[in-house]
Design a protein around this nucleic acid. Structure first.
Lengths: 213, 213
DNA sequence: GCCCGCATCAACCGATCGGTGGAGGTAACG
DNA sequence: CGTTACCTCCACCGATCGGTTGATGCGGGC
């Protein structure tokens, strides 16, 4: 426990929109339990700030120009930074939640959370508790229930990327420096994983699922 | 211009995220030239509020649960509401800007605009001037400059949709009740329009451009 | 040590696709 | 009335794809 009477919870606000930063600062401005000690407008700045001043909880947006939130979390973890990261974003898409949690986020809230929800979440995150927005929790549950029906291998993603870019099997083979037979094998595997029968549908499913685009 | 001493510019803030509304209200709170007279969390509420109280400028988000911003703008125009609408959103994607402008928005700003930019934009919108964020303006210019390099015909979109769903030319022909030759013709045309050489790449470009997905 | 996922390659086949070069019909617009 | 865009259709061809079967080697997990 980091001490109840050990001073306010020190916050770092990371969002590329000044207006959102204003709003967040406003939420905590009136409460003496919190102190916004720094702000950042992208992932790189977030890492710098978090290393420069002592921070307890980072409110982190995910989609930002330059370095995004997930990479920032990864770097902070690599640096051994002790700050808890509470992801606070507009999207609850599958493709956003999992990487953030895997990178080491303590919680995941949507920006449409009410103010008191946000405050409770920050307290919880500071205490090391995992906080998930209900809709996010639901998504995760659905995930583990379905046990990752997709999960293409790295090589399969390479092939799919090239196919989406219009490459023939031959061209993809040249690009990846393997034989055309290998490309075909990868394709058949990823067709089965995605539940499709041809490259066009595979590209479509990949976009729908966020594997591409 | 429209009356310097005629009282503050009355604002309606429409956004589904309380934090964003907080931030926006904060921007105008200190300035006696502005008064936030109402807020709304979605399009339907925005229409109700705008009809209930006199509003000069509406700050409107586009993506909201239920009724989105574009539909709200359309309805307000249909009702003859005199308020200027300044779209203020996170996205500058092609598919968002044009419908909003067509629906009757006076301006289009991104949420990463600085506070002073926002204030100038509201003043300009109040005066009836069109305000476009630089990146948005660039997009529009690119549009008219390129004179719609895409713009698939309805039939071509039908074919593309089926192809993305995994249909063969034969299957698409059955579905659309035309001959396979017709499908092939449509495909070749849309390949040329999208600048690709096969269906997989066409699907990818379509997703990137927002024609699909 | 064994099994499994992954990546790699081969040969073969029928089905499908993309391209070419036409053609006719309708509807909108100036 | 001519132009233009769109939708429709035909025949032919080579290129490409999707599926099958089978194989090798590597690495991790039980």
């Amino acid at each position: 426990m980091s001490g109840a009477a050990a001073g306010p919870i020190r916050l770092l606000i990371v969002d590329d929109h000044p207006i959102v930063r204003d709003g967040l600062r406003g939420v905590f401005a009136g409460d003496p339990d919190f102190a916004v000690v720094a702000e950042a407008a992208d992932g790189a700045e977030a890492v710098t700030r978090a290393e420069a001043v002592e921070v307890d909880v980072i409110l982190m947006d995910l989609r930002m120009p330059g370095m995004g939130g997930v990479e920032a979390i990864t770097r902070l973890r690599a640096l051994g930074n002790p700050a808890r990261v509470l992801v606070l974003t507009t999207f609850d898409s599958d493709r956003d939640v999992l990487p953030a949690i895997e990178a080491g986020a303590t919680g995941y809230l949507l920006k449409d959370a009410r103010r008191d929800e946000l405050i409770r979440a920050v307290r919880a995150a500071h205490a090391g508790q995992s906080v998930l927005a209900p809709s996010v929790a639901g998504t995760l549950m659905g995930r583990v229930g379905a046990r990752e029906p997709d999960s293409l291998s790295p090589r399969e993603r390479d092939v799919l990327r090239l196919v989406a870019a219009g490459a023939t099997n031959q061209a993809a083979a040249r690009e990846l420096m393997v034989s055309e037979a290998t490309i075909k094998t990868h394709l058949i595997h990823l067709y089965n994983k995605l539940g499709v029968r041809d490259r066009a549908a595979a590209v479509a499913v990949a976009y729908e699922r966020g594997i591409l685009g």
